[in-house]
């Protein structure tokens, strides 16, 4: 049973398009579009519909809860109204995410696909980054040659970060599922950890790196669980995220 997502947009095309996009990475997640408004004769209009949102929530809720993601202005207000009208039992498992619609939905869908609970899915949506600096996506890794495929690491008794680098062995590289796995593992640790310069607790940022097979993943961790974090990442990479 997965958390469901409801996409509230002024445009039915936007809502449906985002569901299509997210479905590619999250086949088991109930993704329900609540876009646009139908006039009396069923002609689609730009706008948001309270009724559509209520219906979508009930369709998306399989018992694990629902996260609503919205576009502009009235979509937010319509979603808020719907939350005031659903019964109080269901209300406990429905969240309205303050997130960028496309990025937030994809991040939430990937998280929901992994079986995460409604609050974790909401957090994934809300921490998905809107604007990415392309120069940060493929950082120059000066020490890449030092450790490809090996995972050399150093200890962190003096508070210095623990670092390691690996070459990705699996054909799909760091795609959505492993990104979600890594981010979830790191979120459970007491650690500040980056992968190729981005926050390793963010599914979206990990995915945005676009690290394919043969690319070098460099992790840097600091904090009480730093070594544990590096060990876990290393084990995941070595097993090709379970895909080898």
């Amino acid at each position: 049973m997965n958390v469901g997502l409801v996409i509230v947009s002024h445009s039915s095309k936007i809502a449906e398009g985002i569901c299509d996009l997210a479905r590619e990475m999250a086949g088991d997640v109930p993704l329900v579009a609540a876009g646009g408004l139908d006039d009396d004769s069923g002609v689609p209009l730009i706008g948001t519909s309270f009724e559509k949102v209520l219906e979508a929530i009930s369709t998306a809720d399989q018992g694990a809860g629902v996260v609503l993601l919205t576009d502009l202005g009235s979509a937010v207000m319509t979603a808020e109204m719907a939350l005031e009208f659903i019964d109080s039992d269901q209300r406990l498992r429905v969240r309205l995410a303050r997130a960028a619609l496309v990025e937030g939905t994809v991040a939430a869908a990937v998280e929901a696909q992994s079986g995460a609970d409604v609050d974790t899915v909401t957090r994934a949506a809300e921490t998905a980054i809107v604007a990415l600096d392309p120069t940060e996506l493929e950082p120059f890794v000066s020490h890449a040659a030092a450790a490809p495929g090996e995972g050399g690491s150093q200890s962190s008794t003096d508070g210095k970060p623990v670092e390691a680098a690996w070459e990705l062995p699996n054909p799909m590289g760091l795609h959505a599922r492993p990104a979600a796995t890594l981010a979830r593992m790191m979120s459970e640790l007491d650690v500040e950890v980056t992968v190729n310069g981005v926050d390793a607790k963010s599914v979206m940022l990990l995915m945005s790196l676009g690290l394919g097979q043969g690319k070098v993943l460099t992790a840097s961790a600091a904090g009480p669980d730093a070594q544990k974090a590096i060990d876990q990442i290393g084990a995941e990479v070595a097993s090709g995220f379970g895909e080898l």
Binding site: L45, F50, S74, M77, T78, E80, M81
Partner: peptide, 18 residues
């Protein structure tokens, strides 16, 4: 209120509805 919320479509729907 309920009718406006389901038929206006824009921000005025939830605002006048509320």
């Amino acid at each position: 209120a309920m009718t406006l919320m389901s038929s206006v479509g824009g921000a005025a729907g939830p605002l006048y509805g509320t």
